[in-house]
């Protein structure tokens, strides 16, 4: 009886965590049938390359969402850190330029987190506050650049971040995957990660068992800011230049990927595996449509449908959880 139960429970968990994987596989299968050039090594690396920027943003944001808040400010954080990383290079050198940008990204998170925790903000508050922050940082990026793009530095090691390969694998993919693995281990295996879950599940209960809720909230925002900076590096290194609006809408795409991957917006659930699957689904959809040659107007319609269809695979999982 007990063993049977455990097996049942186990299958249930697998089913819950991997329904979206199924959706991804179906999408990939469909795309490969529709186009022969889809399932090639070249194209797969391409997809990863395309999603690594948004993917990094989504990884960081997942922390915030699991912790029960929103971070809408990441889009312009990507722009700003990218601009700083590029334009500071001639002055302080690559290392310091990147270090400073990273610090800026983390500081933005620190500011977000500090404001939200010091007013005891709700989830809705975090949405508006980080949205306000998005606007402010966008303005800063525009003011610094006076609205113009910043040309790249031609520094080989910097460009390597966006375009280099290690063996056959692009460096940006490695960066994304390694970050993902480290972050996944952190949030699922460590006590700090668990505390973030507790906070997201019910911050009142978490507070009453002595979890430093404010501290962890700020940490999630700092991680999100840091990952936005990393995304900024990859983005500006790949196109070898920075633009004040380069990151527009990234926050939106990242939230989408996260939710498509199966992480609920109310906090305290899901892991980065969900995020990665969501990111890949979004990447595969765009890539496949380009390869198959759907016109950009039709792409919108198709994308909308596929998005919903992909999430529909998730239904029965929700059904199970919603019972009772």
């Amino acid at each position: 009886m007990n063993i049977k139960n455990n097996i049942k429970l186990y299958l249930n968990t697998i089913y819950r965590s991997y329904t979206m994987l199924l959706a991804l596989i179906i999408l990939i299968a469909l795309a490969s049938i529709l186009s022969h050039s889809f399932l090639t090594v070249q194209n797969i690396t391409n997809i990863f390359r395309q999603v690594s920027v948004m993917g990094c943003v989504a990884l960081g944001m997942s922390f915030v969402i699991i912790g029960g808040s929103f971070d809408m400010s990441v889009g312009s954080t990507v722009s700003l850190t990218g601009i700083l990383a590029i334009s500071l290079q001639p002055i302080v050198g690559v290392f310091w330029a990147m270090a400073i940008s990273l610090i800026v990204g983390v500081s933005i998170g620190l500011i977000n987190g500090t404001i939200i925790t010091s007013i005891n903000g709700t989830q809705g508050d975090s949405f508006i506050i980080t949205f306000g922050m998005l606007t402010v940082i966008q303005a800063v990026a525009l003011i610094i650049t006076k609205g113009f793009s910043v040309p790249g530095s031609n520094n080989k090691s910097y460009i390597f971040i966006g375009n280099g390969d290690i063996g056959v694998i692009p460096f940006s993919i490695i960066l994304f995957v390694v970050s993902a693995i480290i972050m996944q281990i952190f949030i699922t295996k460590t006590s700090h990660g668990r505390n973030i879950y507790y906070m997201g599940a019910n911050s009142e209960v978490a507070k009453l068992i002595g979890i430093k809720v404010k501290f962890y909230k700020i940490i999630t925002y700092m991680i999100s800011g840091a990952m936005a900076a990393v995304a900024g590096f990859i983005l500006t290194a790949r196109v070898n230049g920075a633009a004040p609006k380069a990151g527009v809408n990234l926050e939106f795409e990242a939230v989408t990927a996260i939710v498509v991957g199966g992480i609920g917006l109310k906090g305290g659930e899901g892991t980065l595996v969900n995020t990665i699957i969501g990111v890949l689904i979004m990447g595969v959809i765009s890539n496949a449509m380009n390869i198959i040659g759907i016109s950009s107007q039709n792409q919108l319609v198709v994308k909308g449908i596929i998005l919903i269809a992909a999430v529909c695979v998730d239904i029965r999982k929700k059904g199970i959880m919603g019972e009772g």
Partner: peptide, 15 residues
């Protein structure tokens, strides 16, 4: 279908 309203309407938004 029990899709999160954010995603459901996002799909609609694109569509």
């Amino acid at each position: 279908v029990k899709i999160n309203s954010f995603i459901a309407t996002l799909g609609g938004m694109i569509f």
